[in-house]
Amino acid sequence: MVHVAVLARLALTDAEIDEFTGQLAAVLEHAADVAALDTAGVPPTAHPLPLVNVLRDDVVRPSLDRDEVLAAAPAAESGRFKVPRILGDAP
């Protein structure tokens, strides 16, 4: 669960980790019927609709006003969003 919390970027307390571990175990136990089901030959449904090829034309539409965009940000500087230092490169 600690690894999952790291993946999800949730700084949980030890108490929260304990609580969620128990509760998630209960939900996963309930889901054991799904996990155990023989679904050989059954394709997955990712989407309830059979739509394909939904496309738009390559036409420019107005962008947002930068002042409005940056006013919503917790921190900004020089027309950009400001964030604490980044320790690793993007993967």
């Binding site: 950009r80 964030v83 980044i86």
Partner: peptide, 12 residues
């Protein structure tokens, strides 16, 4: 550089 930087700025 990335190491030793104080903060970062992002342009989308």
């Amino acid at each position: 550089r990335i190491h030793g930087a104080d903060y970062a700025l992002v342009d989308y």
